[in-house]
Design a protein around this nucleic acid. Structure first.
Lengths: 208, 208
DNA sequence: AGTTTGGGAGTACGGATGTACACCGAACTT
DNA sequence: AAGTTCGGTGTACATCCGTACTCCCAAACT
């Protein structure tokens, strides 16, 4: 049943990443021991070093992986076109719900480590979110009717919207797929986006 | 220098709580060892049991304490009166900045344990935030001009506002008191509140 | 076919952890 | 003044931790 060596190594590496993700689901990255992970994977503790020089490096690989799926979400959100604003809002929330459900483990990891993780992890996550805010700001700037907005107000609006989406994602993490609670949260997210849209349409930047 | 026994006991208990708060500032509650805390306090490990039956109970005491200061913040925010909306917004943000600066350790603890902590801790924090949302909703409902709002829309708006404030608090935690970054975040928070206010004023609840 | 490579196994060690136990001495009670 | 209470001490032990070391053997290379 054994394959080539690189395939086998990659499979073990994945198993380690998955085991670490599963184990950190209850507790946290910082409370993760090399021996726990090894036992979960089914290898002897010292074999761990064939793949990662330390638990910390495992953590960094996990962050990178999770941020990859976050970036994939952002890409998909930007490509969610639509005729009018309502369609875009509905589509965006649908994408968010679907993605959080699919990559539940990754988003849970991000939520947990965002403030509780080691400094390097926290910074990486913060930069990922800031990137989303900046990209959203430039996207909005390309929309018609935003010429009277100051750059600063655009940035602040983006932070508000991204913050709402992040909070929505965090709420979704605690619900069952297809549950009434999930639908209620999605509905609230749509309403919030509409409220912010109404606010934006009636906003006049102060020329200071 | 020794006082009465109850005074001495209370002082040691406080020292344990403070040490745990300080130690969990880097890392997390789950990665906190009884011996670390005891060493930080300056007592022998077994003496810890004179005050708490386990580290977990220490954690619960810490949560309760932190939620107490959170409730104090909410109380103060509700008493922040003002002539017009702009004054209320400015006052509320000022209170938030001041309180987060004052009880930095408690709010940092809440931010860290909100998603990474043990289940009991996470639930307690979630309930504290939900309480704030409900109270804000009933406060808004008592304002003039909100008679056309559905109860659900009021709740959703409150969640949006509280979410923005929570995000602001989390951002403030990473800044130095009086720094330009802190002022920038406070300014963004004020702008966000104004944007949501504009949205709310032009909002019409759908009668479904 | 013979040799090299590298993932995994096994053993071993020092250090940290939670906790049980007996004990001390000063603040309290009577 | 004598006795009790109880926060803190010191010792002890089983368990878990990271990691260094040697060995094994099947895939990969020559």
């Amino acid at each position: 049943m054994a394959q080539t060596r690189v395939e086998q190594k990659e499979r073990t590496r994945r198993a380690i990443l998955d085991a670490a993700l599963a184990l950190s689901e209850d507790s946290a990255l910082v409370a993760l021991s090399l021996r726990q992970v090894a036992k979960e994977v089914g290898i002897v503790p010292t074999a761990f070093y064939r793949h990662f020089p330390s638990i910390e490096h495992l953590g960094l690989a996990l962050v990178e992986e999770s941020l990859d799926t976050l970036r994939a979400l952002l890409r998909e959100l930007r490509h969610t076109a639509g005729e009018d604003a309502a369609t875009i809002i509905d589509g965006s929330v649908a994408v968010l719900v679907e993605q959080v459900r699919r990559d539940h483990a990754h988003y849970g990891f991000i939520a947990r480590e965002r403030f509780a993780g080691p400094a390097g992890v926290r910074d990486a996550i913060a930069r990922g979110i800031e990137l989303a805010e900046r990209e959203l700001a430039t996207d909005i700037a390309h929309l018609p009717g935003t010429d009277t907005w100051t750059e600063r107000d655009l940035q602040v609006l983006s932070e508000l919207i991204v913050g709402s989406m992040v909070t929505t994602a965090e709420r979704l993490l605690g619900t069952e797929p297809g549950s009434p609670a999930e639908e209620r949260i999605a509905d609230a997210a749509r309403t919030q986006l509409r409220m912010m849209l109404v606010g934006a349409r009636n906003w006049r930047s102060r020329t200071t």
